[in-house]
Design a protein around this nucleic acid. Structure first.
Lengths: 248, 248
DNA sequence: CAGCGTTGTAACTATTCAGTCACTTATATC
DNA sequence: GATATAAGTGACTGAATAGTTACAACGCTG
């Protein structure tokens, strides 16, 4: 990336014809994408600047439009990339061979570490939701490919129920959402939370403690317990109809 | 807010000199704030348009700048408002007189319902974190006033431990974060989640089911259990140093 | 009612930004 | 090597948009 590629080349060509424009279509494309991931994830869709992306990618804006059409489609490509990336990583986990409890712990640990290592994923997921998931909806790749974690979780739960480790009445989707939630919220909102709770939340120790707490939380929810009606839904307080409908 | 305040008043005054400008500084100010909450929460800081806010507030842009200085300070005022609002609501809960378990359930229920009824709060909290909490930091009101939920939770936990209902080793801050997380994530990210899990997440039934699940999750974590080492941290798989430091 | 600070309006400015154009250069194929 | 096509560039454009200015009207205080 740092060879002396002269911008418009041959201006000062001492020798005859300089190889002014080393054509690297694929490289250019991936550089644009990489720059766009950084820009969109730090500044959001509206805050992101196309010129910034082009500059970071060290290409002309023109090529960006050639490859991706416009800002909207570029965002879609970016979102597709980060989502398929995490799906791929997830697919390589191989939890089928582990005992259900270990598998569940490994899954939570994976999500935690992935979100930590890839803040751009959570930021972009967030942004996409602010935009009403319109890119998700219009993306063939995302609509057809699908998150395996629901099925991974289903499988783990089923095995755990079969061998008596887990409660039989856990909804895998709810569990997935909770698992993601407790990792995501902490990492996304640590800036305000660290002020509110007046505690450093991003030190090594704090991060380790959070992972441990998250694992405990998930396990506490699914582990079979001696007849304990403690958490039965019937114990809910009146939740009357204050809920308002939001479009789904 | 909804009395018949004529926007620019007496426009249709049949008689000579119209009383063009009914002065209502306080009303104007609150109308601007209200409009700004809506605009910032739906479009984010970068996506929000000052002219839109002025239009929604039925006011000239001039007054907006007079009252709030600039877009940045307006956002700060907005964020201060929604945050102090939820603190106030929280303070009125009166959980001190309830048995610890009921109090905890009531607290989770409150957060869930508040987030449901005030999507602008979660959206703005989110935006503020994307902006690195810079408005939080520079806000005297927010730095001095503080979230009671940590102390509420501390009190509830202490009482529960005392009467044997709860485990003695729960960190109230972690519990608060988890409580907020499981409510927040579901409501913020339902747009993509409903596609990923191919399930309607915002129907009355789904919302009720989620609240029930969230209550169960929190209770499962804190309720005292017969000697069960199930969730002990020692059971963690090696979590080696793959974690990378992020600034706090 | 005179004077004055505050509340308001409308038009304006300077900038920023997504997207385009005219044109050049490299590379693949014949 | 000729030719076509793809890769690339810098300057440009038109539309938004944050923030300002000149000016008018209100209504309070003396």
């Amino acid at each position: 990336m740092e060879e002396d590629v002269k911008p418009t080349a041959t201006l000062e060509t001492a020798e005859g014809r300089t190889s002014r424009h080393p054509r690297r279509p694929d490289l250019s494309r991936s550089r644009i994408l990489e720059a766009a991931v950084a820009e969109f994830s730090t500044k959001g869709f509206a805050g992101a600047r196309v010129d910034e992306i082009a500059a970071k990618a060290q290409i002309g804006k023109r090529m960006l439009y050639q490859y991706f059409g416009n800002k909207e489609q570029l965002f879609q490509a970016v979102f597709e990339k980060v989502y398929t990336d995490i799906w791929e990583a997830e697919a390589n986990l191989n939890l089928q061979n582990m005992p259900p409890r270990d598998a569940l712990v490994a899954l939570v640990t994976f999500v935690w570490r992935y979100y930590m290592a890839h803040p751009e994923f959570t930021k972009l997921l967030n942004e996409e939701n602010m935009l009403g998931a319109r890119h998700f909806r219009s993306s063939k790749v995302l609509r057809e490919g699908s998150d395996k974690s629901q099925f991974l979780t289903e499988d783990i739960l089923a095995r755990g129920v079969a061998d008596g480790t887990f409660r039989p009445d856990i909804d895998p989707v709810q569990l997935c959402l909770t698992k993601n939630a407790i990792c995501y919220y902490y990492l996304m909102n640590h800036a305000t939370s660290s002020h509110v709770y007046q505690r450093k939340l991003m030190t090594r120790e704090a991060l380790d403690a959070r992972l441990a707490f998250n694992i405990e939380t998930i396990l506490a929810m699914v582990l079979a317990r001696p007849v304990d009606d403690a958490a039965s839904p019937t114990a809910l307080p009146s939740h009357k109809d204050r809920s308002q409908e939001l479009p789904d």
